[in-house]
Write a protein that binds this DNA or RNA. Sequence first.
RNA 1: GGGUAAGUAGCCAAGUGGCCAACGGCAACAGACUGUAAAUCUGUCCUCUUCGGAGUUCGGUGGUUCGAAUCCAUCCUUACCCA
Length: 425
Amino acid sequence: MKQNFIEELKWRNMLQDSMPGTEELLNKEMVRGYIGFDPTADSLGVGNLVQIMTLLHFQRAGHKPIALVGGATGMVGDPSGKSSERNMINEETLQYNLGCQKKQLEKFLDFNSGENAAEIVNNYDWFKNFTFLDFIRDAGKYITVNYMMAKDSVQNRLENGMSFTEFSYQLVQGYDFYHLWKNNGVKLQMGGSDQWGNIVTGTELIRKKAGGEAFALTTPLIKKADGSKFGKSENGNIWLDPAKTSPYKFYQFWLNAGDADVANYIRIFSLKNRAEIEALEQEHLAAPHLRLLQRTLAEEITARVHSEEALQRAIETTGILFGTSFDAFKALSSTEIEDAFDADVTFKVESTLLENGLDPLALLAEHSSIYNSKGEARKAIQGNGCSLNKEKVSLAQKFTSADLLHGKYLLVQKGKKNYYLIVAN
RNA sequence: GGGUAAGUAGCCAAGUGGCCAACGGCAACAGACUGUAAAUCUGUCCUCUUCGGAGUUCGGUGGUUCGAAUCCAUCCUUACCCA
């Protein structure tokens, strides 16, 4: 069952812009299309997930998706959307990042589906032996500086300055498109709307240099309803790598999405069809407090990005920490408790210390690093922002062995949503 | 190479000799209210602290002064104009 790619993107609100003729091309034949990924970090984040989904829908519509990892472009630095010159990352880091991202991409796309099997390419492969002189003759000659200057990504930087390196970026990315067009039969480049300028530099180069035709399609940038950035949480970016963002936190991120955003998200990140999603939306409107959309979305994405088991564990942890009363928590077995906490939120404390009674500052800041300093812990406690075994902590309190569950556990809450486990041994 | 303007906390930005750990805004975190939502109100927001304080900051380095983000010298960075 092939879907119409453009129609699919439209109802999912994933279509920002496309070049005239793009839809006709897609209806006519199996198209090879690519999206570039920038190796600035050692993991992709949920921000990149939009582009991954675009490729996935593209493949499901019967086309051939190609993910380009930017071994070469990463060395230059994309100025789009950046207000100042970027620091260069060294080659070693870059290689490492590339490897990590490649592994993640491989999880999403189907590489064994015959003629439209996904591919991953690295633009470093064709740039590594390309000399500067060749480049300015083979690519630079076809694009005028006037044209490059007109780009938003350049205009926005004229006030504060921009190096030649970053100015050249669009030409490097443009050449990627040309290379893939010429050698791999790629006719379409997709990307976030901030990439429009870079993408059309590519189609322009293809037209001028080879008289060929190529197409562009962009997706809107996701914004939260309050205008803040998508994909960040209190602890920074939400990554796809379970070592950097645990499946539990990943699940929580989606579960915590606001109503105003979640309808948007589910269309983008869910593979459910239109009827299913619209039905869910109806149901959600009838009873918003059940947060059906958030739950459905969180479950689907967590299972896809991590695994069904990781999802089950995240749901269980959530149930233990949020859903049930403390009595229910007490009823859990030691194994269940320990399973619910990841290593980075578990702290060990000598049980002898507790026998003598420990004040909260010593316990939370000195003997564990739930808080970085006593001052920080003190402020949080004074602000009523810390609970132990589900009860608000006061500075005057002392904790002893009698407070331990199963003789060894203490449940600590920093704020409402951050849980830690202290194990006495 | 010449001239002009600028560089203050995560970001924006006030501050032109003591009242400055530095107005204000954004972001962030926490509390109340809620639906683990939004909006709103409140608190925190350089570091450490025995909560009395202590230490380190205003591009870098030196200097003047009892005292410098503030004055002087010099260097660095950036923008604009001229060559």
